[in-house]
Computed example of a mutant assay.
Amino acid sequence: MKKTTKYLTGMGTLVLATIALVAADHIDAPSSRGTTADIADFFAFEPSEGSDDTTFIVDLQSDVLPELAYGTFDEDVLTEINIDLDGDLVEDQVIQAIARDGKMYFFGPVAPSTTGLSSQVLTDAALGNVEISSTTPIVETTTEGVSLFAGPRQDPFFFDFFQFNAVISPEMDSAPGGFFAPEEATDTFDGANTLSIAIEIPNSMLGTPTATNALGLNVYKTWVTTNKKQ
């Protein structure tokens, strides 16, 4: 029997239609700030050229400054990877992840019971689970060849946050030289963590990709949402 608890979208979605695309977006969603409903990055790519698998990585916002310890996954937040197979930008397959008692539980890929802004945990489509890593990465591989990971990872975003704030400050003379050259900039997030969810899954479980990217390669249209329990 499906769990009927409603989860409502915690922030905007990001549509991807490339073989490998990176997007970083930190601490700018007031309704989800300070929780792991705040999406920082989403990656979707082949793990190696010609692979029959797809890797999805979702980085969720945590304490971003290096001197702060990473946080934990919020158990009232459902992370959902959405996959469109017919080009209408409505999810046809979803992969869900939710934390419980030190483990990350995965469900899908399966057609969702609802689409759009609300979701239900699809407990009938259990995929597997993995212990949430701390200092040592833990990866579980299911009998279907699906690899699962959840835990802290080095923030991949290079950004001189304090110089950026100086440049956009109303005080026009706070950064008269503008942005620094790459060799002079400071990576504010060096040594900081995000909380990551990663899954490598055979394409045969996802369905046939129908989109084509700029390189002429067939790819999935995919985006990620976070949904908070109501």
Rank of each mutant, 00 (worst) to 15 (best):
S169C: 08
V94G: 03
Y105N: 14
P137R: 06
Q120P: 03
I83Q: 00
L148C: 05
V110H: 10
D52H: 04
M104F: 01
S51D: 09
V121L: 15
M172W: 09
M104T: 07
E67N: 11
A69C: 00
G116A: 01
F157A: 08
V146E: 04
P182F: 00
T141Q: 13
G87Y: 13
F149H: 09
L122N: 15
L85M: 02
V58A: 13
I81G: 05
A99Q: 08
A181M: 05
F162M: 05
T186A: 03
A185V: 07
P66V: 03
P176N: 11
E80W: 04
D160S: 00
T72P: 02
T135P: 03
P176E: 09
F189R: 08
T136Q: 13
T55N: 07
S134Q: 11
L78R: 11
P109C: 04
F158L: 09
E75K: 13
T142N: 05
T79K: 11
S118D: 04
I98D: 06
F180I: 02
I132F: 05
A185I: 00
E183W: 00
D74M: 02
G151D: 04
L68I: 04
V64T: 14
F179W: 04
K103N: 13
F179Q: 11
A69Y: 02
A99T: 04
F189L: 13
D187N: 15
F149K: 09
T142Y: 05
P156E: 06
G128H: 04
T141K: 13
T143L: 09
G116K: 10
G151W: 14
I83T: 07
V167G: 06
Q154P: 08
D124W: 01
G102Q: 08
L65G: 01
G71Y: 03
L117V: 10
V77M: 10
D187C: 01
P109L: 04
A97N: 12
G71D: 11
T188E: 08
D52W: 00
D59W: 07
T115R: 12
E144M: 11
Q120R: 14
V110C: 09
V94Q: 07
A111E: 14
E67M: 12
E80H: 07
F164L: 04
T188D: 12
G116Q: 05
Q163F: 00
T188A: 15
E140S: 14
S51P: 06
V77A: 06
N82R: 15
P109E: 02
D84I: 12
E184G: 01
N82Y: 04
V110S: 14
V167T: 11
D173P: 01
N165T: 12
V94T: 14
V77S: 03
F180D: 03
V121K: 15
I168W: 09
L68N: 14
K103T: 09
L68E: 12
R100D: 15
F164T: 11
T115F: 03
V139Y: 15
D173F: 10
D187I: 02
I57M: 12
I95W: 08
I83V: 08
E91N: 05
P137M: 07
I83P: 00
D173Q: 10
D86C: 08
I98S: 05
T115M: 04
D173T: 11
A150Q: 12
D84T: 10
D88A: 06
S174H: 09
D101I: 01
D63A: 12
F106P: 06
E75S: 13
